[in-house]
Amino acid sequence: MARYTGPKTKKARALGEAIYGADKSFERKKYPPGQHGNGRRRKQKSDYALQLMEKQKAKYTYGVLERQFRNLFERANSGSGVTGEELLRLLESRLDNTVFRLGLAPTRRAARQLVTHRHITVNGVITNIPSCSLRPGDTVAVRGKSQGMEVVRDAVAAKSDIRKFAWLEFNPDTMQGKFLEYPEREQIPEKINEQLIVELYSK
């Protein structure tokens, strides 16, 4: 399955955002990568460059490739809501992202691995497709025999008191959560300017 497997800190520095979570290396060097470091004189970015960077930031944050991202944008654009907000709602409703938000995995990359290795069920059915879109009322849980995995238990213990999202509910005792509704834009913590993405695809 194709996905980005390159250096995470370098990509975060290029996009100017710690898109893969807390990163000490990024905090030390909050400037774009390059052999001349922070002393290089950089030109002001064009509107197109800013729009492209915002799209790349969203793609790498959620672990989505170009074709998938374009398909999601077209789905969002065909809906009745605000296109940019609909796009983020569709990204948030992906199974791998929901597993991460519930605290079953420390990162989205780890959540994707849990799903592809058949440790996650949706409405009681084992699902190994990370891009699976959830609907309000869907139940996401750790497969019975996988609940004793150390990586899952550690993730749940670490996030039980710091990750609360209004559109999700989670029971750490049963390792089962529910996707209650599509989130509102102000509830999504990612620092993404979705309007720039809409402008990019509207050209």
Rank of each mutant, 00 (worst) to 15 (best):
P136Q: 09
I162Q: 04
L15D: 10
G81P: 10
I188H: 04
R112D: 06
Y60L: 02
M175S: 00
D154Q: 14
L91H: 04
R3Y: 09
T121I: 05
C132M: 10
Y20R: 15
V142D: 03
E190M: 08
K29N: 14
K43T: 10
K59D: 08
R118W: 00
L196D: 03
L196Y: 03
R40D: 04
S80L: 07
R40G: 05
T61Q: 12
T107K: 08
P106A: 03
R28D: 13
V125W: 03
G177F: 01
S146Q: 12
T61M: 11
R28P: 06
Y60R: 03
R118A: 14
R3E: 12
E199T: 05
L104Q: 07
F73H: 10
D138Q: 07
V140M: 08
L196E: 02
L72S: 12
A58W: 09
M175I: 02
F165W: 01
K55R: 12
P106K: 06
I129C: 01
L102G: 02
F179M: 02
N123I: 07
E92Y: 11
D23C: 12
R185M: 12
Y48I: 08
D23K: 05
R185F: 00
R185T: 02
T127P: 00
A12C: 13
T5M: 09
Q56F: 04
Q147V: 07
E169G: 00
W167I: 07
L102W: 05
R13G: 14
N38W: 08
R67E: 14
I162W: 00
P106G: 00
E199G: 03
I120R: 04
K57I: 09
E184R: 14
A105N: 09
L91K: 06
R118N: 08
G137L: 13
P7W: 13
H36P: 04
F100E: 11
P130F: 13
E150P: 01
A157M: 08
A111R: 03
A157T: 08
P130R: 11
P183K: 07
E86Y: 02
E54G: 10
L104E: 07
Y48L: 09
S146K: 13
A141L: 08
L200C: 11
F170M: 06
L52N: 09
G37Q: 14
R118C: 05
G39R: 11
R75Q: 14
H36M: 14
T139W: 01
R109C: 01
L134T: 01
R153Q: 15
L200Y: 15
L90Y: 08
R13W: 03
L50T: 06
Y4W: 12
A158E: 12
E85I: 13
I162C: 03
E186R: 10
R163H: 01
N77R: 15
D154F: 05
K30M: 15
H117L: 07
Q51I: 03
E66D: 15
A2D: 11
G39W: 00
P7Q: 15
K191R: 15
T121V: 12
F26W: 07
P136D: 06
T98Y: 04
G144R: 09
T116H: 01
K10S: 10
G144D: 15
V198T: 05
S25K: 15
I126S: 05
P106E: 06
N97I: 10
L114K: 01
S202D: 12
D154I: 07
T98V: 15
K164S: 02
Q44V: 15
Q195A: 12
E194V: 14
D161N: 04
E190T: 04
N193T: 04
